[in-house]
Nucleic acid binder design. Structure first.
Lengths: 376, 376
DNA sequence: CTGTTAGCGCTTTCAA
DNA sequence: TTGAAAGCGCTAACAG
């Protein structure tokens, strides 16, 4: 049997009439006026009980509360928002909620928002400026109080316009070309960490699988990663190979390009774990052992990173904490100091099994041929 | 330098006055009245242009549209919702958005909702009835048009009450004790699939790491899994070990209990991949090889399942499609047939590396003796 | 301390 | 085809 019954000609859910919700006993919609009537007070007093309890005598307070409970009254947020001239929901725009990184971030934001009785409206932009614009309009129509956003393009005029119209926006990434509040990880540092680790492990021929530079975090990771080699003056060869989207599929797809590189890299840094996962998959399907023949460093320390085989060495960041902080500043709860308080979380290296130490310095120079059996 | 500047005593974001958003040229809030003024029509006409374009002369239509564009006017959804007596957002309550399964599901729902100009309010219940109730109140205050929910307890009175008050609710799981619309995977079938596979592979001593039976999907998976053995009459020994939450941590924690079992199981079925991942981790830390000593079957085919080592044999379901369908019926777009249309997605088995075939029938018989070899 | 009142921006009769 | 006016449920200012 199906769960949605088609019992004897009953109309199905989709075509039920615009039946009015939440009726009181008399058949009218349940509202503060009815609560007031039941408690024997005026609407204004009900409002006060809800919003400024201290302004009302405790006897009346109790009576009103009782009425509220017994009726199961829930104030109409649309009306409040309308009256207050500003919505109470908060919007959050990420690249893709289905991606665990953004999922966790959303979770963190949602946690603090709902704790404050605020709804969070979640939208995915898929990295598409059009879709981003569309969802921003949507959020604006809902009069959201503020939007937390990982912008496709920080410099987007739509963003600026949104802010100009009075919506608070807090960026889910740090960015030089932005003056508003922003919470994010210091991705330049993250890139640097990866580079230093690889250098220290003896790697000199490297590749970096990265997303489009329109994404600030990609740009930053590249900057940090590349600047280490530029500075080191160690004659390392670093190639950046770009992928259009940060997905496992693209990572796997990039493997071909990686293997065509001359000289072939001994290590590849991936802009995130999902890509690393794709690269790992691509390498595995071609029978190339990791880390024996190529070392991999990911970014994010996603759930699965520790459980891959080999376990993925990665740069750890805590997306949920970003979400929490972003929501906190968005709600104006960041009363600490001058508002510039700790807006960047420092990522750190998690050493696992996907990076091999190149013991013999010559080995890294031997171009492509020769590989020692390396058993460990 | 920090991204949120504390430049020369300028007040920081949190304490800016309740400055009114989206002003028109004259300093008042931008509304349909101002659009009307600019276009030289009345408010009602603007409303018609937006909602019933066919009712308005094309000349006026163009003029109004132009005014809308030039002003950058976005209608106030709170006001519409208030006036319409029903919100336009849709709520979705899952156990945890940070979990990739729910993240994907949310994504699917969000995709179809935003395509229809509807906002999605996302909430995580964490499997806690209190938190669920809290978020349901939140959603109700926002007057959401409908809520998509994976209930902590299908039989919850709060759910029934919500529905009674006129909010559409569509369940994100199939359940016998529910008569409203529901989209979900046929978990009984899923459990059955796992059992049949294990049986076919020669396993007779099994364990099932499962979450609380208050969660319908857990109950159903158990039902399907157990009923196969009951029916098979093959004298298989199956033990269900319960974990309070469906997390990797709990899975790892359950490993002890698993290993204490007499007789020790040759295969364990896990209620989802995340738990399987925890069990895998627990087993690995104790040096017990999979699948050589124990076989594992997961559920969900999460992102990482294929990349574990060994790659996880699992029951695949498509959460995003569930989300899409749920949102579709919620929006009353399911005009197909009588409303009972395909409300269950069939899961299927994905054979990978975590299940070993017990070649020698004696091996599996040694423990409990007698069973018809049942090969099929 | 509590009641009264005036709208917030929008949709929708009802008239013109 | 368009305009005028009423009112959705709530809050805030002001009176009592």
């Amino acid at each position: 049997m199906s769960t949605s019954g088609s019992d004897g000609g009953a109309p199905h859910a989709a075509e039920r009439p615009p039946l009015e919700p939440q009726r009181g006993g008399n058949g009218r919609r349940l509202n503060s006026h009815m609560v007031a009537a039941l408690a024997g007070v005026s609407q204004g007093t009900v409002s006060n009980v809800l919003n400024r309890p201290e302004k009302v005598a405790s006897a009346t307070y109790d009576r009103v509360m009782e009425a509220i409970e017994s009726l199961g009254f829930v104030p109409n947020q649309s009306a409040r928002d309308l009256r207050n001239g500003r919505g109470s929901a908060i919007g959050i725009v990420v690249l893709d909620v289905a991606n665990p990184f953004w999922g966790e971030l959303v979770r963190g934001a949602e946690e603090v928002a709902t704790r404050h009785g605020r709804a969070v409206i979640v939208c995915s932009s898929d990295g598409s400026p059009e879709k981003e614009w569309q969802v921003l309009k949507l959020l604006e129509s809902y009069q959201v109080d503020c939007v937390l956003i990982a912008p496709v393009d920080v410099a987007s005029p739509h963003l600026a316009a949104l802010r100009r119209r009075g919506t608070d926006v807090v960026l889910l990434e740090r960015s030089a070309e932005n003056d508003g509040p922003a919470i994010g990880v210091d991705d330049v540092l993250g890139g640097r960490l990866a580079a230093e680790h690889l250098l220290e492990m003896g790697h000199r021929r490297l590749a970096f699988v990265n997303g489009p530079h329109t994404i600030a975090s990609c740009r930053d990771r590249a900057q940090g990663f590349l600047e280490v080699f530029a500075r080191a003056g160690c004659g390392a060869a670093v190639t950046e190979v770009g992928v259009p989207t940060l997905t496992a599929r693209e990572g796997a797809h990039a493997t071909d390009a990686l293997l065509r590189l001359e000289p072939r890299p001994t290590a590849v840094f991936c802009a995130n774990d999902v890509i690393a996962l794709g690269v790992l998959r691509g390498l595995a399907s071609r029978g190339i052992p990791v880390p024996e023949q190529v070392s991999i460093v990911g970014y994010d320390d996603a759930d699965f990173a520790a459980l891959l085989s080999p376990a993925l060495t990665t740069i750890r960041i805590d997306p949920m904490e970003i979400g929490r902080r972003a929501a906190t500043v968005a709600l104006g709860m960041s009363e600490d100091a001058d508002g510039s308080a700790a807006d960047a979380l420092d990522p750190f290296l998690v050493r696992r099994e996907s990076v091999r130490r190149l013991v013999d310095p010559l080995e890294s120079e031997a171009a492509l041929s020769a590989e020692p059996s390396e058993g460990r």
